[in-house]
Design a protein around this nucleic acid. Structure first.
Ligand code: FES
Ligand code: FES
Lengths: 146, 146
DNA sequence: ATAAAAAAAGACAATAATATCTTTATATAT
DNA sequence: ATATATAAAGATATTATTGTCTTTTTTTAT
């Protein structure tokens, strides 16, 4: 559904948001440990998110990543688009160049409905909200050990 | 959403089903031309579908691919599972090893709902039905030329 | 029987995604 | 000012996916 890079991005952002406090910065190694992701690959992803303005960072001692107040309400959709690209969830389910109602592939009606539900879901859920649920202990970012 | 291989598989099967007649066999090159796919890559995909019993074939002159009567009602879900694997649409949206209600990731509730809608859709739509719609001219397997 | 046609199989090539490692730049604390 | 911690950048490696080409096997038609 999403690339691994995108899954790591979402997990990282939710983790950062869940740790968000006054001026709190989260280091790369802490993030990677918390979400169980390869450190350097995660670094690449954070760089993309940073360039897109979704996450902020400072270098040096006590540096790390954090979310600006105006970045907190970022939606899953924006994250997916930042990492997997804007076309990732708008294309034809069967790979035709263009998805359209007027020139539909055989699965267009059925598929586009589900795909649009997915888009709606991604657009309705913010990192902030998901982080809050995580803080409440209602969800987890790591695999169960059992 | 699906791999390219899977998209080609679905398109190929719908095409074959739409041409299905008494003992009619469709050659690989005709299929690839009809669905706009790389011939040899399509061959590999057809071999997988053939081994899984989803499509049948005969070699030699006038040979080709066809659908057994009992294969006609095959669903999209079966095709997706044959090509992309049985786990492809059951995993966690954020990449956790296991998706479960009792150990949910932050997007589990929202995501699993959409994913299950997708599964339901794939399970409700047969190649046969989609091929019929194609035959009626209600859909297309190739890109618009304009 | 033989030749031709077609799928099956296998080897290889190109590309993209994922992952690792090294170096550089920069901000902070001392 | 200096040393240190950290993200940023860059280079390379690995793996998976997609695509191409060649050879083999099997079936049919002659
Ligand atoms: S044309 Fe294929 S999903 Fe819309
Ligand atoms: S646990 Fe992540 S989608 Fe179910």
């Amino acid at each position: 559904m999403f690339s691994k890079a995108c899954k790591y991005a979402i997990r990282a952002l939710i983790y950062i948001a869940s740790k968000e406090g006054e001026g709190n910065r989260i280091g790369l190694s802490e993030i990677a440990a918390a979400i169980d992701s390869p450190v350097h690959f995660t670094a690449k992803i954070m760089q993309i998110l940073s360039k897109q303005g979704i996450v902020s960072s400072v270098k040096g001692p006590n540096g790390g990543f954090y979310l600006e107040a105006e970045s907190l309400p970022v939606t899953l959709l924006e994250v997916v688009r930042a990492i997997d690209g804007v076309h990732h969830l708008s294309g034809c389910g069967l790979g035709l160049k263009k998805c359209s109602d007027s020139f539909p592939c055989p699965v267009h009606h059925e598929f586009s409905e589900v795909r649009d539900d997915l888009l709606r879901m991604l657009n309705e859920n913010t990192i902030q909200y998901l982080a809050h649920e995580l803080s409440l202990g209602n969800s987890t970012l790591k695999n169960s050990l059992t």
